[in-house]
């Protein structure tokens, strides 16, 4: 699959090359980058293509901001599974005198946290989280359930890394299915083919494999074991920059996890099941850059055709 312009797999070299080309703009904080217009043009094309994977008659297109009401996060159970990944929003809470002291400390890069108080918001940890409470608010599902497409939502994971394929702030594009258990299972199966076909169309060397989430702590090992054994999570992986291939898409079957927490019931009054398919947009862009080179104008015609309709 390698072209002449293909990049070394070592992530130090890959990261240096991406920065030298201006594709990534380092911020001084690990895992947080700006991007240039070339990178963004590819990401937006991936975003459009991911939207188009679902017929508009099949999926409702909803968009949510990069912050989530803390109450929804608390209801979701996220803190039990991933307490180490969440970013919470804090804001100033104090007097005028406190504000002066806060600025004095901040201007010297000292500790000004004592003047900050937790707000009602957290940073969005995954694109699908706002979908469950929004749909639950409508009451019982229509017969056959519902499918939602979130677009590329800006999400946050507190995991600083030098690997350009492990960002703290990135765009996750999801399709979410909520409905009867059998329908949800069949949907995920259908989407594993659809997602693989899409990424193969982009001439990426991809593999579908069972996977587990990075659950926290020793109890997390148990949860990961359960998830693997039941094949609740599948990942589509491709070589990007680490020794191991990196996941660029995942297909997650939550059983009734979100449905029980948010009260999602089918038209028959039974507890619904949910599943989601997520695409990591920056990771797909990085995989394309690594595989086909840094200049999209030189990419294989089939890839440009799939992304920009070029013939």
């Amino acid at each position: 699959m390698q072209t002449e312009a293909a990049i070394d797999v070592d992530h130090d070299t890959f990261l240096k090359d991406l920065i030298a080309e201006g594709l990534l703009i380092p911020s001084g904080t690990a895992g947080v980058y700006g991007t240039n217009s070339v990178f963004e043009k590819v990401r937006l094309a991936v975003d459009d293509a991911a939207t188009s994977l679902a017929d508009p008659r099949e999926a409702e297109r909803l968009r949510f901001p990069p912050v989530l009401p803390r109450r929804h996060l608390e209801t979701s159970g996220y803190l039990r599974s991933f307490p180490h990944l969440l970013g919470s929003v804090f804001a100033f809470d104090g007097s005028e005198r406190d504000a002066v002291e806060q600025e004095a400390r901040a201007s010297e890069h000292g500790d000004w946290s004592e003047f900050q108080r937790m707000t009602d918001l957290v940073l969005l940890p995954a694109a699908c989280y706002p979908v469950y409470p929004a749909i639950a608010e409508r009451g019982p599902l229509p017969p056959g359930g519902i499918t939602v497409e979130t677009g590329g939502a800006c999400v946050f994971r507190s995991e600083p890394s030098e690997d350009p394929a492990r960002l703290q702030s990135f765009h996750m594009h999801e399709h979410v299915r909520i409905g009867e258990p059998e329908a949800v299972k069949a949907w995920r199966e259908q989407w594993s083919h659809r997602a693989l076909a899409f990424l193969t169309d982009l001439r990426l060397e991809v593999f579908l494999q069972p996977a587990s989430d990075p659950f926290f702590g020793r109890s997390g090992r148990m949860l990961a074991s359960s998830q693997l054994q039941q094949e609740l999570k599948l990942e589509i992986v491709t070589p990007i920059s680490a020794d191991e291939p990196t996941a660029i898409a995942s297909l997650n079957y939550h059983q009734d996890h979100f449905a029980t927490r948010f009260g999602l019931v089918t038209s028959e009054g039974e507890m619904a099941h949910t599943a989601c398919v997520g695409f990591g947009e920056e990771r797909i862009v990085l995989a394309l850059l690594r595989t086909h080179g840094f200049d999209p104008a030189t990419w294989p015609i089939e890839v440009r055709g799939r992304l920009w309709g070029e013939a």
Binding site: R218, S219, R221, M222, S225, Q229, Q230
Partner: peptide, 8 residues
């Protein structure tokens, strides 16, 4: 031990 923390 970690090796015993499995569903099985």
């Amino acid at each position: 031990p970690d090796s015993m923390l499995t569903r099985r």
